[in-house]
Each structure stands twice: as structure tokens, then as C-alpha cells.
Simulated scan of single mutants.
Amino acid sequence: MKQLTFLFLFAISMANAQKELPNVTLKSIENKPVNIQSNFKETDKIYVYVFWATWCAPCIQELDAINDVYDGWKENLSIELIAVSIDDSRTEKRVKPLINGRGWDYTVLLDSNQDLKRALQIANPPYTVVVKNGKIVFEQAGHTPGGEKDFFEKLKSL
């Protein structure tokens, strides 16, 4: 029975590991279309997609914390952070002022119809998806203050 349970858990983990990044087109904050697969496909580069919203305090805390260390991450890794706002059409107008006020130096995309969020089966923000060579290599739900140090160690191991 233990072997059967182990095989079942192993099969589930393998099914979730290394899945493809969906082919979805979002909007930039300049309202231009951006295709996730074709715009972010540099070989061996790590793409970190952080799903957030203007109304989500832990999301903003996480992006602020990463912003404090992001330059160091870029010095050590070939990495790009893409902040994917899941604000809907009513709250989308708050995104650009918030980004400007925080001074975030991230690529920001708008997923106002939540197409990418749905395709990745994300329940709630904050949620982080790490992609390398078009494959999802790590996912993390939630934010823990100070967790960016452990997260950076995880990124270095990829």
C-alpha cells in the first residue's frame, strides 16, 4: 500500500512539474498586446511571474520586498520579474499610479480578464510562477515577510 501511495504522489508531482507556460496574450500598462510565450523566451533566462492586485496588501509587500533586492538578483542571475496585475476593469486604472508611486522597475502586465490566472489555475494572489526555457519550474502561493531570501536561494538552484 505504501508503494502504491508513493507511486500515486510521484505521478501527481511529475504531472505538475515542468508544465508548459500557456500561450496567452495580455496587455502592457501602455495598452499594447504582449504574448507570454513569444515575448519572454530567452534561453536559460529565469522569468518570475508575480500575480498581484492593487487591493492585495500582501502582494504589494512582496513586490516592495523584492524591489529592495532585485538589482542584486539581476547581478547574479539572468532573471526578469513580470508583475501580472489581476485587477479587473474597475480597478485597473489604479495600477499605473501605484507602480509609479512605488518605483518598481518590473515589467508590468495586465490580466484584467484573468486569462493567464485561469490557465495556470491560480486561486488567489499573491502567487508566484517561475519559468525557465518555457517550462514552469516552481510555483509558490502567498507571501511571507523576509521570504525573498529563501526564494532567491531557490532561484539560484535553478
Rank of each mutant, 00 (worst) to 15 (best):
S85F: 09
R102P: 04
P22D: 01
V34G: 07
K74C: 04
T43P: 04
W55P: 02
N67T: 14
C59V: 05
K96F: 10
V69G: 06
L77E: 10
E80L: 12
A17M: 04
D87N: 12
I46P: 00
E42H: 07
V50M: 06
Y49C: 04
I60H: 09
L63K: 04
D88Q: 07
P58N: 07
C56P: 02
D68V: 10
A65D: 13
A57Q: 14
V48A: 02
I82K: 12
D71P: 01
D87T: 10
C56H: 01
V95G: 04
A65T: 03
I36P: 00
W104Y: 13
N67W: 03
E30N: 11
P97L: 03
R90D: 15
D87Y: 10
V34H: 08
K32H: 11
C59G: 06
E75A: 14
N39I: 02
T25N: 05
N39V: 04
I36K: 00
I82V: 15
D71S: 14
Y70Q: 07
W55Q: 09
E75F: 05
Q37W: 05
E42K: 15
Y49A: 03
Y47S: 01
N35R: 05
L63Y: 10
E92F: 05
S85E: 11
S85L: 10
V69M: 08
G101I: 01
G72Y: 07
N67F: 02
P97K: 04
W52T: 01
I60S: 03
E20D: 15
V95S: 06
N39F: 05
P97Y: 02
Y49L: 15
T25F: 08
Y47L: 01
I46R: 06
A53K: 02
E30R: 11
K74F: 01
F51C: 04
P58S: 09
A83I: 03
D88A: 07
T54G: 03
T91F: 10
A53C: 11
N76W: 02
W104R: 10
G72S: 14
D44V: 00
I86Q: 08
S89D: 13
L26W: 00
T43N: 13
W55I: 07
